[in-house]
Simulated scan of single mutants.
Amino acid sequence: MHGQAESPAARSTYSRVAIWLHWSIGLLVILNIAIVLVRENFEALSRTMMGWHKAIGILVLALSLVRIVWRLTHRPPPLPPMAAWEKGLSHLVHFLFYLFIIAIPLSGWLWMSAAETHRPISFFGLFIVPMLPVEQSKALAESFGEAHEIMGLATIGLIILHVAGALKHHFVDGTNLLERMIPGLRNR
Results as ranks from 00 to 15, higher is better:
Gly3Arg: 00
Gln4Arg: 13
Ala5Lys: 11
Glu6Trp: 11
Pro8Gln: 03
Ala10Lys: 09
Tyr14Val: 05
Tyr14His: 15
Ser15Tyr: 01
Arg16Ala: 15
Ser24Cys: 12
Leu27Lys: 11
Ile30Trp: 07
Leu31Thr: 14
Ala34Val: 07
Val36Ile: 12
Asn41Ala: 14
Phe42Asn: 09
Ser46Glu: 15
Gly51His: 08
Lys54Met: 14
Ile58Ser: 02
Leu59Gly: 14
Leu59Tyr: 09
Ala62Ile: 12
Leu63Lys: 09
Leu63Asp: 12
Leu65Cys: 10
Arg67Tyr: 02
Trp70Cys: 02
Thr73Gln: 00
His74Ala: 01
Pro76Cys: 03
Pro80Arg: 08
Pro80Val: 09
Ala84Gly: 11
Trp85Asn: 10
Lys87Glu: 12
His94Thr: 04
His94Val: 02
Phe95Cys: 08
Phe95Ala: 15
Phe97Pro: 00
Leu99Ser: 11
Ile101Lys: 07
Ala103Met: 13
Pro105Asn: 07
Gly108Leu: 03
Trp111Thr: 05
Phe123Ser: 12
Phe124Val: 05
Phe127Val: 07
Ile128Met: 08
Met131Leu: 11
Met131Thr: 14
Ala139Leu: 07
Glu142Leu: 13
Leu153Val: 15
Ala154Phe: 14
Gly157Ile: 00
Leu161Ala: 11
Leu161Val: 09
Ala166Glu: 09
His170Asp: 13
Phe171Asn: 11
Glu179Trp: 04
Glu179Pro: 04
Arg180Met: 05
Arg188Ser: 13
